[in-house]
């Protein structure tokens, strides 16, 4: 008897409690910036591609759904000739983001990418590349690393002295 009353009480309490369910898709849930959703490729603060095609994301990917090919541009920068993510395989684990040494690949709070046709879930570089720096506004790999590129000579990276004159014997 007591248990029946308690059950009725619980039902009444839940009937008037505020609802957790939201009216998706009219209403959108709050997603934190660190939510692991759709993957994007970001750009440097100066607008150039951040990805240097180091292959670490593809190596870290547990489902092997990232394929890319590195090329060296005329300006000395290394970038992917193609960069393909097969989202029909992707498990959004975020290992690629953790592996990325240049903060180029980032997971975003967007998951609305369903398709009826699996082949439409294959994203190429043009689909992945955004126009901004994403979550990390200030970082620029080429400013830190000692590789010379167009507009940044040897010795002009962060914390570098100018190139030495190898023909000098002075200390």
């Amino acid at each position: 008897m007591l248990s029946i009353l308690r059950t009725v009480g619980e039902v009444l309490r839940h009937t008037f409690a505020p609802r957790e369910t939201i009216q998706y898709p009219e209403q959108k849930p709050y997603l934190a910036p660190r939510f692991r959703g759709r993957i994007i490729l970001s750009r440097d603060p100066d607008g150039k591609e951040r990805c240097v095609a180091c292959y670490l994301c593809s190596a870290a990917c547990p489902v092997d759904c990232i394929a890319l090919q590195a090329v060296h541009g005329e300006d000395g920068r290394r970038y992917p000739a193609f960069f393909r993510i097969n989202f029909s395989r992707c498990i959004l684990c975020g290992f690629c983001e953790e592996a990325c040494p240049t903060l180029a690949i980032q997971l975003t709070p967007d998951y609305e990418m369903c398709e009826y046709d699996r082949s439409k879930l294959v994203y190429e570089k043009e689909d992945l590349l955004i126009s901004g720096p994403g979550k990390y506004p200030g970082y620029n790999f080429y400013k830190e690393a000692g590789l010379a590129i167009e507009g940044k000579d040897k010795g002009q990276a962060e914390n570098e002295s100018p190139p030495v004159d190898v023909r000098s014997l002075l200390p």
Partner: peptide, 15 residues
Amino acid sequence: HRYSGRTAMNAQRDV
């Protein structure tokens, strides 16, 4: 064992 891209390298032709 670290070979990458198995499920993406041909995906543009066939998923």
